[in-house]
């Protein structure tokens, strides 16, 4: 059975049920999440929803990749598409 995937930029990222977006991106070797509105590089950092460094847009809403469960077909993008 092919694993479920979500969309990150031009990539289909596979994930296991119960995995967060951050865990799936890490397994896919994605380390940089682009840039945030202030221009700082976004990435996984604290893993406990505190630092706000891993914010990504999920269905148009900024949300922590480390807290948010991956779901099939989700569209996940950097906060600032221009800087991706």
């Amino acid at each position: 059975m092919t694993p479920a995937t979500f969309r990150w930029m031009s990539q289909d990222v596979p994930f296991r049920p119960g995995e967060t977006i951050a865990a799936a991106l890490s397994a896919a070797g994605v380390v940089s999440y682009g840039r945030d509105q202030a221009g700082a590089p976004s990435r996984y950092f604290c893993g406990v929803g505190a630092c706000q460094c891993c914010l990504v847009n999920v269905d148009g809403r900024p949300i922590e990749a480390c807290l948010t469960l991956a779901r099939p077909g989700l569209s996940v993008t950097p906060l600032e598409l221009d800087h991706a």
Partner: peptide, 20 residues
């Protein structure tokens, strides 16, 4: 602040969650 830099606890919880 660079990508690839995490807290130690951040890396640890990711390993606990994924087993990887």
């Amino acid at each position: 602040t660079l990508p690839g830099v995490t807290t130690a606890g951040g890396l640890q919880v990711l390993m606990k969650e994924t087993g990887r």
